[in-house]
Design a protein around this nucleic acid. Structure first.
Lengths: 251, 251
DNA sequence: TATTGTTTCCGTATGGCCTACGGAAATGGG
DNA sequence: CCCATTTCCGTAGGCCATACGGAAACAATA
């Protein structure tokens, strides 16, 4: 399925929802059975358990014990609901501004990674046209403040920011991909690779792939630990090297 | 929509398709109206034009002038078809092993980026449980050979490999996200941001976001060029810094 | 209490998706 | 001409988002 995205709906309405612009309680009329917060919470719960693909309007309504169409009274549509979900979980990062600029970027990366771990469906939410809510904005402010303290020129800060942001979201996404697939398909990554043992037996050609063969023979793949642990190690390594490079590029 | 993925179908069947294991022509029986190659080509064409979300079995069959169910004679299901599509476009990279290890990694990144540019739907294809076909494998061999020439220890090569791979696919994905959304929603990135001018007017709080405000005032966002050009610049910067870091880490 | 205005709830219907099943159609050999 | 074999594909079941419009609930008023 393609990346889920914010609708072309009225931006003002979506922004009001993202920032929960308070509106005076209606004096007359039927009392609502559900609130926006309840809908968002229920939607996140469904997506956490069964993936974004299973998060249908009908499924969320069922979870709340209301009719499907009732949701549309509180939320413009599914795309906007996903925006609300994304911003809500980004708020869970709870960033504390302590330490050097580098430690703060690493903290930001760790917290963002934790969000993806807790909510693997974030992999499927595009951050190119992001939900302009408090969750996203607070995060941007945090990293930009850290990078601005690094000594980079203002113009360089914005460039470095895109690179860091890309790495963090990209790496977090690929790291949780595995879990998400395990959850939705019911097959773990290890089992999946195991079932493809046939590949190494029947298709891998040592003459066509000398570098891989050499690495294999050198024991480069004799690793302890699970697939997830190895990905995490690589994630830390990659971010460290990227920050090394940014630091070194200032001279 | 959630990431599209390979089915739990018979791995042997999928691998045979990926490597196009030749099978002796059937002596008897009805002649096929379409081939696997034709199906994959048509599916790629549809996805290129209208996104992976529009690439339905019915749509592909229509493109080929056959009934929907006829496709299932040649391809196990939609998930496997997506694997075949992904491996096919990865083969377009056509990697030439020239230059220093660093130039080769950069060449790999450029060619992979070109694939995403030409086929934006690749953003929606998970690379965690990748199609183990020639397109993927040749690419892996190419980068691993380059990294192995860098002087890193074998064990370090595999770690660096995951980091580079993550950066390349992640950055390429976020770079094409914008184009893909422009194509499927009919709204360009610039127009989308324009419609959200309201945000800066009504919601942005200079006291809550001092770092962003300072950068803005310092002219860090007074950039010429389009959104796409800026993303490309950041991509190059990020990869350079990552490779700087890898190079520096060897000492 | 009955009416009225307002708001929310939600059943129905439309048009899409994947794919299991099984019969029809085509083909070449005996 | 028959028949085994292979491919083609119509039907049907069970999902999805959401436009529309009427029913139901509620507060204020008469």
């Amino acid at each position: 399925m393609a990346a889920e995205r914010s609708g072309g709906g009225d931006p003002a309405r979506t922004l009001a929802l993202l920032w929960r612009t308070p509106q005076e309680p209606k004096p007359v009329g039927r009392k609502p059975k559900v609130s926006v917060d309840q809908i968002v919470t229920a939607a996140i719960a469904v997506a956490d358990r069964e993936g974004l693909g299973a998060m249908s309007m009908a499924r969320v309504a069922q979870e709340l014990g209301v009719g499907t169409m009732s949701l549309y009274t509180h939320v413009p549509g599914k795309a906007e609901l996903i925006d609300l979900m994304a911003d809500a979980v980004l708020q869970e990062r709870d960033l504390v501004p302590e330490g050097t600029w580098r430690e703060r970027v690493q903290h930001y990366a760790d917290r963002t990674r934790a969000v993806y771990q807790a909510h693997p469906w974030m992999r499927d939410v595009s951050m190119v046209r992001p939900p302009l809510g408090p969750g996203l904005m607070d995060g941007q402010e945090f990293v930009l403040a850290a990078l601005a303290d690094s000594g980079l020129e203002p113009r360089q800060v914005t460039v470095a920011h895109v690179a860091v942001e890309g790495f963090v979201h990209g790496a977090a996404a690929s790291e949780v991909d595995d879990q998400q697939l395990a959850a939705t398909t019911g097959e773990s990554g290890d089992s999946w690779w195991g079932a493809r043992q046939v590949f190494w037996d029947d298709y891998f050609d040592v003459e066509r792939y000398p570098a891989m063969t050499a690495l294999w023979n050198a024991g480069a793949y004799d690793t302890e630990g699970t697939l997830a642990e190895n990905m995490h190690r690589s994630w830390n390594y990659g971010l460290d090297r990227l920050l090394d490079g940014i630091e070194g590029g200032m001279r």
